[in-house]
């Protein structure tokens, strides 16, 4: 494997996987706050917001761990990128509706003052992570991945 794709692939896995594990880990220890963050988007009825708030951190941690250890990289990257697209849509809709909330991406979200919103930065970060996910979907083969043990590279 050429050095550049190897480095890019590892970097993409560390970025997307690392952020997902961190974000999910912070949320999972305070699930009430996670539910509140979802409620603050004002998009779902309470039972649905509660379901999302409780289960999302578990999905985030799982997908993040899969990317970090390099197992099932292609489908994991697809799910990771899909999550990011959904997050971008959620943040954009909050922005468009004039809500003033923290995205709650890393735990306790909810209302903030008008001059404290960071929608552009939040969306920019998630766009970057979406690209990392897409890159891995297209080129899932990276060094130091469990996938390589399951399907030894037949070209090398």
């Amino acid at each position: 494997m050429k050095p550049l794709p190897a480095v890019l692939g590892i970097a993409a896995r560390l970025a997307l996987g690392g952020v997902l594990v961190a974000a999910g880990g912070i949320k999972v220890v305070d699930l009430d706050a996670s539910v509140r963050s979802v409620v603050a988007y004002d998009l779902f009825s309470y039972p649905i917001a509660e379901f999302i708030g409780i289960t999302l951190p578990i999905v985030e941690i799982s997908i993040g761990l899969l990317l970090l250890v390099g197992l099932l990289i292609r489908p994991s990257a697809a799910v990771g990128a899909g999550l990011m697209v959904i997050f971008i849509a959620g943040i954009a809709s909050a922005w468009a509706r004039g809500l003033t909330i923290d995205c709650g991406c890393f735990g306790d979200g909810g209302p903030v003052s008008e001059n404290q919103t960071k929608y552009a930065q939040e969306i920019a970060r998630d766009v970057g992570l979406t690209l990392a996910g897409l890159y891995l979907f297209i080129r899932p083969r990276t060094p130091f991945a469990l996938d390589n043990k399951l399907q030894p590279d037949r070209n090398s």
Partner: peptide, 13 residues
């Protein structure tokens, strides 16, 4: 993953 998520949801909600 789905099983863990559902179990946690039922336990925590």
């Amino acid at each position: 993953i789905a099983l863990i998520a559902v179990v946690v949801f039922l336990a925590v909600r």
